[in-house]
Simulated scan of single mutants.
Amino acid sequence: MDLFGDLRRMNKRQLYYQVLNFAMIVSSALMIWKGLIVITGSESPIVVVLSGSMEPAFHRGDLLFLTNFHDDPIRAGEIVVFKVEGRDIPIVHRVIKVHEKENGNIKFLTKGDNNEVDDRGLYKEGQNWLEKKDVVGRARGFLPYVGIVTIIMNDYPKFKYALLAVMGAYVLLKRES
Score class of each variant (00 low, 15 high):
26 V>W: 08
91 I>H: 08
55 E>A: 01
70 H>N: 11
13 R>Q: 10
77 G>A: 08
8 R>T: 14
17 Y>C: 11
22 F>G: 15
78 E>W: 12
34 K>V: 10
13 R>D: 05
43 E>N: 06
69 F>M: 13
66 L>R: 01
67 T>Q: 05
33 W>C: 09
63 L>N: 03
80 V>D: 01
32 I>D: 07
92 V>L: 02
10 M>I: 07
62 D>K: 01
68 N>P: 05
51 S>I: 01
15 L>S: 09
61 G>S: 03
29 A>G: 14
88 D>P: 14
67 T>A: 05
78 E>M: 09
94 R>Q: 07
20 L>K: 11
28 S>P: 11
89 I>A: 11
70 H>V: 12
24 M>P: 09
85 E>Q: 14
91 I>A: 07
72 D>T: 13
56 P>Q: 03
14 Q>D: 09
47 V>Q: 03
8 R>P: 12
16 Y>V: 13
41 G>K: 03
17 Y>S: 14
75 R>M: 11
20 L>Q: 06
84 V>D: 02
83 K>L: 11
65 F>S: 04
79 I>Q: 03
60 R>Y: 00
40 T>Q: 06
36 L>F: 12
28 S>Q: 07
12 K>T: 15
91 I>F: 09
83 K>Q: 12
94 R>K: 10
76 A>E: 13
42 S>H: 08
22 F>S: 15
85 E>S: 15
11 N>T: 15
11 N>G: 15
84 V>H: 09
87 R>C: 10
59 H>P: 05
47 V>F: 06
6 D>R: 13
74 I>G: 09
37 I>M: 08
15 L>I: 13
92 V>P: 02
92 V>N: 04
40 T>Y: 04
96 I>E: 04
87 R>I: 09
57 A>T: 11
60 R>K: 08
19 V>R: 10
20 L>W: 14
81 V>F: 04
37 I>H: 04
49 V>A: 00
74 I>Q: 07
59 H>I: 02
30 L>C: 15
47 V>Y: 06
54 M>L: 02
51 S>A: 05
91 I>R: 07
64 L>A: 03
30 L>G: 15
78 E>T: 08
48 V>S: 01
32 I>G: 12
9 R>A: 11
41 G>C: 09
7 L>M: 13
16 Y>A: 12
79 I>R: 04
63 L>D: 04
52 G>M: 00
49 V>N: 00
84 V>Y: 13
39 I>P: 06
55 E>W: 01
89 I>T: 14
52 G>K: 01
64 L>H: 03
60 R>A: 00
34 K>S: 14
46 I>N: 02
61 G>M: 02
39 I>K: 08
72 D>N: 09
64 L>C: 04
49 V>S: 00
34 K>H: 07
63 L>P: 03
29 A>Q: 06
82 F>W: 08
89 I>Y: 11
88 D>C: 12
33 W>S: 13
54 M>E: 01
50 L>K: 02
17 Y>Q: 12
80 V>S: 02
18 Q>Y: 06
79 I>G: 04
48 V>N: 01
58 F>G: 01
74 I>D: 08
60 R>W: 00
78 E>C: 08
